[in-house]
């Protein structure tokens, strides 16, 4: 017990609050978003929908027994049980995404929209407060912007990650972490809001350039869906990394702010 790892104050309160509020908001946005998607489970490019040959779609064959499928660029893949046809209330039901991942569980576009837009506002306000704090305190630059020397070590960092030799318990983020967070925080999340707004007929009348920037309203809808998928991927990797690098220490860090540097391996 002589080599107790020293604790450093790693995460200031505004960042911890923003983080956990985002956990709640993004979970609800994802689940209500899939509810909204289910009302028209197809994606297109351009301004308008192509009902006969969408870019991608989830559907059901309508046969007995009913089979669900995903169709991408004309190629069909069976997905019964998960997409197109899944069980709801014990019955096989035709729906895009299954009940366990949509909010509400039953098909209810109106309520799904209410959840989505309320938490979109909460998410937006949270992001503004986070950015205002991060920029004014210098935390954003200090935490997420890699220095030139760090960028020089990017190859080594990639090698470390690929061989699962992650830096554990360093006070600062490593260069890959910084770049990933930077892409998510300043890239994907703002882009996701803009893609969402580009689907609003009201906002489009205010900013007609916005849907055009995405290549049309249906393209913006596709971008919104793809970014949501990328954010889910990010969360999976993020949670996996937390589990692999000392989950107790990582969670304590994001809850209390205090983080043990050079933490001992959990396994030993």
């Amino acid at each position: 017990m002589s080599n107790v790892a020293p604790l450093v104050f790693r995460h200031p309160l505004p960042i911890r609050l923003a983080h956990w509020l985002n956990v709640v908001a993004l979970t609800i946005l994802l689940m209500s978003g899939l509810q909204i998607f289910n009302a028209h489970p197809a994606l297109d490019i351009g301004a308008t929908s192509n009902f006969e040959h969408p870019l991608a779609a989830i559907g059901a064959t309508g046969e007995t027994p009913d089979r669900g499928y995903v169709e991408v660029l004309g190629h069909r893949f069976g997905a019964t049980g998960l997409l197109g046809v899944s069980r709801f209330g014990g019955q096989p039901t035709e729906r895009g995404f299954p009940a366990w991942i949509t909010l509400p569980a039953e098909q209810d576009l109106a309520t799904g929209r209410r959840w989505h837009f309320l938490f979109a506002w909460i998410f937006f306000a949270n992001g503004l407060v986070y950015l205002a704090y991060g920029l004014s305190s210098g935390q954003l630059r200090r935490r997420l912007v890699p220095g030139v020397s760090e960028l020089g070590h990017i190859g080594a960092s990639i090698r470390q990650h690929l061989t699962l030799h992650f830096p554990k318990g360093e006070a600062r983020y490593n260069v890959l972490q910084k770049l990933t967070y930077l892409v998510v925080v300043l890239g994907l999340l703002p882009l996701q809001i803009l893609a969402g707004l580009a689907m609003s007929p009201g906002f489009d009348a205010f900013a007609p350039w916005l849907p055009e920037a995405f290549g049309g309203r249906q393209s913006a809808r596709t971008v919104h869906f793809v970014i949501a998928a990328l954010l889910v991927l990010f969360v999976f990797v993020h949670v996996a990394m937390v589990l692999l690098t000392g989950p107790i220490n990582q969670l304590r860090g994001m809850i209390t702010g205090w983080f043990a540097v050079r933490a001992e391996r959990e396994e030993t």
Partner: peptide
């Protein structure tokens, strides 16, 4: 004009 349905699709 573009007609945007609450379901998510659009037609002109």
């Amino acid at each position: 004009t573009r007609h945007d349905c609450v379901e998510g699709w659009s037609c002109i």
